[in-house]
Write a protein that binds this DNA or RNA. Sequence first.
DNA 1: ACTACGATCTACT
DNA 2: GTAGATCGTAGTG
Length: 205
Amino acid sequence: VAAGARPDRGLPRPLPRRFFARDTVTVARALLGCLLVHLTPRGVLVGRIVETEAYRGRRDPASHAYRLTARSAIMYGRPGVAYVYLSYGRHRCLNVVTEDGGRPGAVLLRAVEPVGGLVLMRRLAPGVPDARLAAGPGRLARTLGVGLAHNGADLTHPPLYLAAGGPPGRVLTGRRVGVGAAVERRRRFGVAGSRSLSRPFPPVL
DNA sequence: ACTACGATCTACT
DNA sequence: GTAGATCGTAGTG
């Protein structure tokens, strides 16, 4: 980069790795209101995180890290790294690894509100209304240009990273989506009033 | 090597 | 409300 050049001027600053080296539920809540930023060759994409889910290991049968396998090994590794997997052979899901000291954990990013790069986002998800462009983990990955190639990417640095945002306002909690009934409740978190939630939070749990 | 199964989304009845 | 798509991962033989 040329001296004096500021290629990231105007862009939010990445969250430090220590942000992610904490309890997974704490990180899942703290990520609400934060920004997901992707500097792609075709443009800058920015979304405000409005929905997350916490997945731990060992004691969490719904977590991919319940057992240590080739795929889940990344959840046992460095916090702040992306864990991207293919769901139902069609959809990619973006997580950020949490915890420290070899403890497994990850937060699934389930929904963001489009903040920047709307024109490109609409191209990536044709026919989807703006508020719904990244409502759901599969749509989020598609609309933000995230693929399996990002598995293992460091989310504390561009081109794909997380950044501080505004306060989330009131936070909703609920049971995780798409997992069996025998698992613990209230590991899904959402920003109340957002029109970009993947689905409503039931009034009573 | 072979099989079963999804942390989902879309389309259609 | 429910079915089908689609393929990497994980478990079994």
